[in-house]
């Protein structure tokens, strides 16, 4: 009887794990990113993926002046896009300034990483805007 109960509990916990498994790539990415940070890989539906954000992948280039300038310009453009939607985040402009200062001092790796962070902020702000358009009403009392 005890053994049966243990098996039943085990079976239930296993099926719970299956139910809780992410059912979209986005969920799987966010789960793994939150658990392991950047620079890791995870498998979702039989395929291997990286936990790096697209901007971090963009920044993984040779650290030189041209690449740093290109990523900074790209981050600025993305931030202008989110500002137009009135969803700009507070720290982004400052991060871009820091990236420019690092590039000016010849610290190109630092500049690339900061520009990637700024571009990520901007992209998230744009995603937030689109989410808000569809969902803002959900907390309105009825």
């Amino acid at each position: 009887m005890i053994r049966k109960t243990i098996f039943a509990a085990l079976a239930l916990s296993l099926s719970a794990t299956v139910v809780a498994a992410p059912d979209s790539y986005q969920d799987a990415f966010e789960l793994n990113r939150a658990m392991y940070g950047k620079g890791h890989t995870f498998v979702w539906q039989g395929k291997e993926y990286s936990t790096d954000h697209p901007e971090e992948i963009e920044a993984a280039v040779e650290a030189n002046a041209a690449n740093a300038a290109a990523l900074i310009a790209s981050a600025k453009a993305k931030n202008a896009e989110v500002a137009k939607l009135n969803f700009e985040w507070k720290l982004t402009r400052d991060i871009i300034k820091k990236a420019e200062a690092a590039a000016a001092k010849g610290e190109f790796r630092k500049a690339l990483n900061l520009a990637a962070q700024a571009k990520y902020h901007a992209r998230m702000g744009i995603e937030q805007y689109h989410y808000a358009q569809a969902n803002w009403h959900l907390s309105v009392p009825e």
Partner: peptide, 16 residues
């Protein structure tokens, strides 16, 4: 009612 910013907060999140 719109969530915004890096903290993803709306006015309503705090005041409702």
């Amino acid at each position: 009612y719109t969530k915004r910013g890096q903290l993803n907060l709306s006015c309503a999140n705090c005041h409702l």
